[in-house]
Amino acid sequence: MPTYSRRAVLNGLAATMAASLAPARHAFAQLDDRAFFFLADTQARLLASMCDTLIPKDDFPSASEAGVVDFIDLQLAGPYGQGEGLYLEGPFPEGSESQGYQLPFTPAELMRRGLNAFGEAEPGFADGEESRREDMLTRLSEDDVDLGDVPARAFFDELWQLTNQGYFADPIYGGNSDYAGWRMVGFPGAHAYYPSFVANHNVPYPQPPMGINHDPGGDGGLPRVTKRQEG
């Protein structure tokens, strides 16, 4: 089976979704020519359309435009996806909601099974209008879609958590590209030092965002000299 680059895969979405998927510049641009690490192409396309229903494009980028699919792919391929911080000793009897996660799946297994089953259950999802996609995700979140051995709600919760994290986590993880999420809310980032500013009431903080490895307002290139934070 031929392998396509991740950007080619995402740009191959149906017309309603494909408007401007590849951001002009982002921290992991060098990955654009590579295949996904974890996701199969069909899973990636479905995931992008699901993420973009959860965080659609408005004045600020959609989830996939902000690199959330790349973020989720990296997370699922890495320690989190492989079950770090998750106790997976059996048996696995069903519990009450107050007892939390009781499935025998790592996050990667849960997402793979969930995406495959959801793709089969809702084959037209990616081509649907936004309101129709919203309806489908609402039913998913309410456990009202049959995904076989994957509880719909557990899949939805994992999907939504990863999408949200990808939009707002530091750009070193592949999402929040060009600080999309941080610019949207006004979070200035990781270089945080405010002793002379905290008691200045009702004054907007003037600096653009700066992540762990990036310049303020930078394009994701290598860091230059750290600039003074406070005006």
């Binding site: 989190y80 770090e84 911080g85 994290q165 707002f168 986590a169 530091d170 070193i172 993880y173 980032g189 990781a190 270089h191 945080a192 700066m210 992540g211 762990i212």
Partner: peptide, 15 residues
């Protein structure tokens, strides 16, 4: 030490 410590995903969410 910051800025590496100021990583919400790694410390606040991945514990």
């Amino acid at each position: 030490a910051g800025p590496e410590e100021h990583d919400e995903l790694k410390y606040a969410l991945r514990y």
